[in-house]
Nucleic acid binder design. Structure first.
Length: 572
DNA sequence: GCCGTTTTCGGCCCGACTGTTTTCAGTCG
């Protein structure tokens, strides 16, 4: 079985961790991390690229050496350098790097002096008071380590973006209420609309910085103050979410917003551009010598480099800077571009609203159409429809449409793709529908070849219009199924089938990077809310966020089209 | 280990906070 990109990235990341622990050249460590990042962001399978004779050294951050090492991993499934590193370094030692406050130097120091080799060793050493006497450590550091370990927060926890939206709103409101506060913005991955966030980075312009910091560190939700400075403070909330607050002067607001929005990789790329022009870019502005020449707003920073303002969602160093320089950035889709929703459940299966209620809610959103796509019979737990019940629903929707004006309900179904790629309902009944959404809800564990063939076989059925949540992933709970995406994209384009970007916060499937690749492959994307109640149609905004991160313009998305054009596409 | 509009060698983003130090190293983002 071919080695997955994710596995290659993990190996490179582990090499970086172990090299760091050995005190290797930090730039060499960085090179491995950079390569791991490049690899995990690829949609094309590296094994396939090598088989096709492509030169991996063309990829950013990968040179001749790492291209060779990746080829070795693909060939043999392992990497000699990694094996050597593992033999030299206790494997559990790398886990210590995950403890806040512990970096490579401290881990090595504790390993050398106290023979600490694991998290348990570290916990015991801290509990027994042996760490305070190690040179470079003290009582406070020891107490902090013990506290981190006993609170069980060492495993990195990321939150779904949708989960923290409300909290972020409360924070902004509470901080904005401090007298003299002029700007409060949540930057970071939250502003980039990344599917998960590890923490919140809040930025403020304040008349009374000390007062704002005092308010921030004493908010009722704060469980622990990690740092409390004049311009920077960090807290951990009761739900374990870390929040950092920075207070900056107004003339630096744009620079700080840019800096704290990131991504880190994007910032580094911008700083390098500055460096080449003899400019220093930091969170206070852009400086030529001592003189600040930009920084009050973000646009001014980009303008300095001859670039249009790059939308936060694109700032991942995935080609956006080159595209901005060439004036080829896409005009990203917005919510107002949507004319309808193509994946919604009614109370006929596992939804909570009737088709009539869904129609009313869709109309309130300004939609021209909405597809009712209930589950098929195979999904018993969802009260999936068999042919008879589906025909009854078809007749009911026909009647309903006769009574509606300004909105059209499309007759649809989310039909199960069975293990062999056949569909859960026969062609004759599916043929009576306006739109057929096909989806996998079982056997996510097939090998990549079999899984890809299963999807393609389903798309071979001419009634199928959309492939729903293609990878099947559930963020933090279920890994994406293994697929040859390049093949899948080609098959979808050839057959006139759209791939879905499912907007449910835990799905967001296709993921952003795959949307970008699908777009480049000429595949049409359908954004579906997968709402199970009339009040949840608005969930589609989460899909919009990811569509923008996936470089999609309105023209790339099926449900921005007027009804007549949509119907042309659905006719295949 | 990567990379090139000063370079195929010699660089490699930049600043805040903490804790342990007496002027700074380590960590973090």
């Amino acid at each position: 079985m071919p080695v997955s990109n994710a596995a290659i990235a993990r190996s490179l990341e582990e090499v970086a961790d172990l090299l760091e622990l050995e005190g290797a050249n930090p730039f060499r460590v960085r090179a491995y991390r950079g390569a791991a990042r490049t690899v995990s962001g690829l949609s094309q399978n590296l094994s396939a690229m090598i088989a096709a004779g492509e030169d991996l050294a063309e990829l950013p951050g990968i040179g001749a050496d790492l291209a060779g090492k990746i080829a070795v991993i693909v060939d043999s499934g392992s990497l000699p350098l990694l094996d050597e590193l593992r033999a030299r370094t206790p494997p559990a030692l790398a886990k210590l790097l995950g403890v806040p406050g512990m970096g490579p130097k401290r881990v090595r120091q504790l390993n050398a002096v106290l023979k600490v080799e694991s998290l348990e060793d570290l916990r015991r050493a801290a509990a027994e008071g042996r760490i305070r006497d190690v040179p470079g450590f003290g009582e406070k550091t020891e107490a902090n380590i013990l506290s981190e370990l006993t609170q069980g927060l060492v495993e990195e926890k990321r939150f779904l973006l949708a989960e923290v939206e409300e909290l972020a709103g409360h924070l902004v409101a509470a901080l904005s209420a401090v007298p003299g506060t002029r700007e409060v913005v949540v930057a970071g991955s939250f502003r980039r609309r990344k599917e998960t966030v590890g923490d919140l980075d809040v930025l403020a312009v304040a008349g009374d910085g000390a007062g704002l910091m005092e308010r921030f560190t004493t908010l009722p939700d704060v469980a622990r103050v990690l740092a409390h400075g004049e311009t920077k403070s960090s807290v951990r909330l009761k739900n374990d979410l870390q929040v950092d607050l920075r207070v900056v002067p107004a003339e630096s607001f744009g620079a700080a917003l840019h800096y704290f929005t990131g991504s880190k990789a994007h910032n580094i790329a911008i700083r390098r551009m500055g460096q080449k022009q003899g400019l220093k870019v930091n969170e206070y502005g852009v400086f030529r010598g001592e003189e600040q020449i930009a920084g009050a707003d973000e646009a001014g920073i980009y303008a300095l480099f001859g670039l249009p303002e790059i939308p936060p969602e694109l700032r991942e160093d995935r080609g956006e800077i080159a595209a901005a320089a060439n004036q080829t950035l896409p005009e990203l889709i917005t919510v107002s571009d949507l004319r309808g929703d193509l994946h919604v459940h009614s109370s006929d299966s596992d939804g909570r609203s009737s088709p009539a209620e869904l129609a009313a809610a869709a109309q309130a959103l300004g939609y021209a159409y909405l597809a009712v796509t209930d589950h098929s019979k195979r999904l018993g737990v969802a009260r999936g429809l068999d042919a008879k019940r589906l025909r009854a629903q078809i007749r009911a929707i026909d009647d309903l449409n006769g009574a509606l004006s300004g909105i059209v309900l499309l007759k649809g179904c989310e039909v199960d793709i069975l293990e062999d790629g056949s569909l859960d309902l026969p062609d004759d009944v599916l043929g009576e529908l306006d739109v057929v959404v096909a989806a996998v809800h079982s056997r996510f564990d097939l090998g990549p070849q079999q899984q890809t063939e299963r999807f393609i076989r389903a798309m071979d059925r001419r009634c199928v219009n959309i492939l729903a949540h293609p990878t099947g992933r559930l963020i933090g709970r279920r890994k994406p199924c293994e697929l040859d995406l390049e093949k899948l994209f080609a098959a979808a384009r050839e057959r006139g089938v759209a791939l879905e970007l499912n907007a449910q916060p835990a799905r967001l499937d296709l993921p952003d990077i795959h949307c970008q690749a699908a777009r480049e492959a000429g595949v049409v994307i359908a954004i579906g809310s997968d709402a199970h109640a009339a009040g949840r149609l608005g969930d589609i905004r989460h899909g919009l966020d990811q569509a923008r991160r996936g470089w999609l313009a309105a023209a790339d998305v099926l449900n921005t089209r007027p009804l007549t054009e949509l119907k042309r596409f659905l006719a295949r």
